[in-house]
Design a protein around this nucleic acid. Structure first.
Length: 152
DNA sequence: GCCAACGTTGGC
DNA sequence: GCCAACGTTGGC
């Protein structure tokens, strides 16, 4: 199975690339959108992920992470005290899943959404066309291009 | 802080 | 199964 590429969004004031760098690894809790969940369930160990900061000025790709554990039930959905608690989820048949990711690197310079939109070869990215999806697939050529923009 | 775009819920 | 109402995301 060939390696796949993804993009995951995070609000830096909640969990930034620097938090991931410090923690080395994290579990990606709190995804409560079916499309995003389905993408996470399709992830394989070793897949690479663009780390995107939303809700900042300017928003953009700030680094890379790697999937180190395939999807497993997101335990926060069963914890009444957790803000991601979902009363409608059944422990026998969990509704929400998470993966574990590992810090790989920060880009030398952030690749802003503005810059991504300016590149014709990136105009088919989900990021450009469905701005609300927080976990999304990325084509290899798009992944490579963004890394080049951030490291060049 | 506003609001467009999108997803989800629930009444019928 | 439709669709109005509502909630959330995220760019600006």
């Amino acid at each position: 199975m060939a390696k796949s590429y993804w993009l995951m969004k995070s609000e830096p004031h909640v969990y930034s690339i620097d938090d991931l760098k410090k923690d080395k690894t994290t579990y990606w809790e709190g995804v409560r959108n079916y499309q995003a969940r389905n993408h996470m369930m399709a992830m394989e160990k070793g897949d690479e992920v663009l780390y995107y900061h939303s809700q900042q000025t300017p928003p953009g790709v700030v680094g890379v992470s790697r999937v180190i554990k395939k999807a497993y039930p997101d335990f926060t959905q069963f914890d009444k005290k957790n803000k991601y608690f979902d009363a409608k989820s059944d422990e026998e048949k969990p509704r929400w899943w998470m993966v574990d990711v590992q810090f790989v690197k920060k880009l030398k310079s952030e690749v802003s959404l503005h810059d991504i939109k300016a590149v014709k070869a990136l105009s088919d990215m989900v990021l450009v066309n469905n701005s609300r999806l927080s976990v999304q697939p990325v084509r290899k050529k798009e992944f490579d291009r963004i890394l080049k923009m951030g490291e060049g």
